[in-house]
Simulated scan of single mutants.
Amino acid sequence: MPHSPLQLLDGLLDENGLETAAHRFVLGGPFGAEPAETTAERLAHFAGAGGLLVETSHSYAGGKAESAVGDWLRKNPGTLGVATKVGHDTTGGNIQLSRDTVFAHVRSALDNLGVEAIDILLYHCDDPSRSVAELADTLLSLVEAGHARRVGVSNWRAERLAALAARLGDSGHTPVASYQFSLAEPDPALLEGSLHADSAVLDVVRRHRLALIGWSSQARGHFARTEPKAHNGKPDPYDTEDNRTRRLRCVELARQLGARPETVALAWTLHHPGVWPSIGPRTTAQIDSSLQARRLTLTEEQVRWLRDGR
């Protein structure tokens, strides 16, 4: 009997070895800031190509992103799982993560998405004024209320992530983590408060066997161009000496493999078990281009060389 997309999603998150044509890519994009037909075309194409999970946030596109995704999900129920994040206002600023505020935002997200339960519900940020225990208990309450199937966090410091994983683990739940993760490591000062999955975070992810949604997995196009690109009027956070040399190594290996440099960089990300690279293609052709990374099998030596040059 074929598995449903959501059964496959749980299977891949839990690394239980399901044999399936499904893949670990997560679809992001400018939902709510583009024509509805563009969103619909991209979501349908992604689902048809074995995609399982679409990612958005309660704050994206001035609060319009969830509704844009929800319009398609209502017409195609059970086709894709959905991950959304709460903890930012519609300007992208952090809010206090009180239980009442979180529950109110989650109920609003459920209405926007048109689903009975959110497949993966994440805190978009931390609230250091509150204990990990309090924030974890709020997440558990959301699961117990039937509002979320899986829960987790984005942009938490490693020590707080570890404490959360332990707290939820004691209650039988393994959280999902969400951080920037790609071959290009950004200048943290230019990420505007968001966090890269550094060695400390990755140690927690591995130790607690967490699934990691790696956003900006293509480093905002760093490996597909030769010149830096400003973001929101600020310098390109990926334009560093280390990342420029990594791009050159991708170009060299891509020539050997008959692939594109950005495909090699994305294959590097896929090489890491438990990482779900989030991609933000604007067209169906760009979805297909990203999915080509599945056909590249890199050796451990190539993976190490791409990152460290040795």
Rank of each mutant, 00 (worst) to 15 (best):
E262S: 13
V143S: 03
D203W: 04
A177H: 04
E134K: 01
P128I: 05
A219I: 04
A254C: 10
D236P: 01
G146A: 10
S131R: 03
V201G: 07
A148Y: 03
T263Q: 13
E241V: 14
P128N: 07
L212C: 03
K229F: 09
G146Y: 01
R255N: 15
G221V: 04
A184K: 07
E252L: 11
L190T: 09
T240G: 05
A259K: 13
S141C: 09
L168E: 10
K229D: 11
A259G: 13
R220I: 11
R130C: 03
A230W: 02
Q180C: 13
L122P: 00
A197R: 00
L164N: 06
A184L: 04
G146E: 09
P261G: 14
K234R: 15
L122Q: 08
Y238R: 06
F223Q: 00
L195W: 01
T226R: 13
L168M: 11
D127G: 04
A133C: 06
R206W: 00
G152F: 10
P128K: 02
S171Y: 07
R160T: 02
H231I: 14
K229W: 09
E241T: 14
P128S: 01
A148G: 11
Y238M: 02
L122Y: 09
Q218Y: 00
A265S: 13
A162K: 12
R157H: 15
D239A: 12
L139I: 00
L135H: 00
V205H: 08
V151K: 08
G172T: 00
W215E: 03
H231M: 13
G214C: 07
T138W: 02
P186S: 04
K234A: 11
A133Q: 08
V151G: 07
L191I: 14
H173I: 15
P228E: 02
N155K: 06
C250S: 10
R247G: 02
C125T: 13
T245G: 03
D170F: 09
Q218P: 10
H124Y: 07
V176M: 07
S154Y: 05
V201A: 01
P261Y: 12
A219M: 02
A162T: 03
A158P: 08
T245V: 14
T174W: 01
L183H: 05
R260E: 13
T226Y: 10
